[in-house]
């Protein structure tokens, strides 16, 4: 199994990196881009010995405890089967 974890700043938190990228993009002449917010993306390879339920529980904990800071960020976990 493989998993993807997306971490992004909460909507209420200012994202200076996203803002800077947005400004640069506008300077370059891109039109119609209203906002950019930057996040983080993790690709995780999981052992086949884990059940889906075990993997979900562990990934949720991993995302909450380590990969994100709940004060400023939120996360989303995706689990995909590999054949």
């Amino acid at each position: 199994m493989r998993a993807k974890i997306f971490v992004k700043l909460k909507a209420s938190v200012l994202d200076p990196q996203g803002k800077t990228i947005h400004q640069a993009v506008q300077t370059l002449g891109y039109r119609g881009i209203e906002d950019i917010r930057q996040g983080k993306y993790f690709e995780i390879a999981l052992s086949d010995s884990l059940t889906r339920d075990e993997a979900w529980a562990m990934l949720d904990r991993l995302a909450r405890e380590v990969l994100s800071n709940p004060v400023i960020e939120e996360y989303r976990v995706e689990l995909e089967e590999t054949s």
Binding site: V13, L14, P16, Q17, T20, N69, V71, I72
Partner: peptide, 17 residues
Amino acid sequence: LCESGLLPGALLPNRTM
């Protein structure tokens, strides 16, 4: 200290980057 929860809040990248 903030990351470990001994103090509240977090330190974000500077506004100016």
